[in-house]
């Protein structure tokens, strides 16, 4: 058992933790954080599998992950914006009902 397999399983465990968090967490921000943890797990899995042969490092998954990181931050920003927007609408409607 090489260290790359060890890392790939850790990536899977991170993905499972993130999935659990997405379903179970109560606050929307926790859900967004859990999605990001899921993303870190997937990236870790891909990068660890790129090194499953200890002599050769496969650069293709590295390029995919590099693309994925930028997309992940864009998605996070969009989700956070929506969250803030919903929160403000929620608050103003509460003020009006008072």
């Amino acid at each position: 058992m090489t260290s790359a397999l060890f890392y790939s399983m850790a990536g899977l465990a991170l993905f499972a933790i993130g999935f659990f968090g997405v379903v179970v967490a109560s606050h929307v921000m926790r859900k967004i954080l859990a999605l990001n943890v899921m993303g870190v797990g997937i990236f870790m899995f891909l990068i660890a599998l790129a090194k499953r042969n200890p002599l050769v490092v496969d650069p293709l998954p590295h390029a995919l992950v590099l693309t994925g990181i930028v997309i992940a931050v864009a998605g996070t920003a969009l989700a956070l914006n929506l969250m803030v927007r919903i929160h403000h609408i929620d608050q103003s409607s509460q003020e009006q009902s008072k």
């Binding site: 042969n53 490092v57 293709l60």
Partner: peptide
């Protein structure tokens, strides 16, 4: 999550580590 974890761990463990992916082509 447990099912996903179990399935992928069995897949990963069945890999013998001889596969180099696309590294040689690149």
């Amino acid at each position: 999550a447990g099912l996903l974890l179990a399935v992928t761990i069995t897949i990963v463990l069945s890999d013998k580590g001889h596969n180099t992916g696309l590294a040689t082509v690149i």
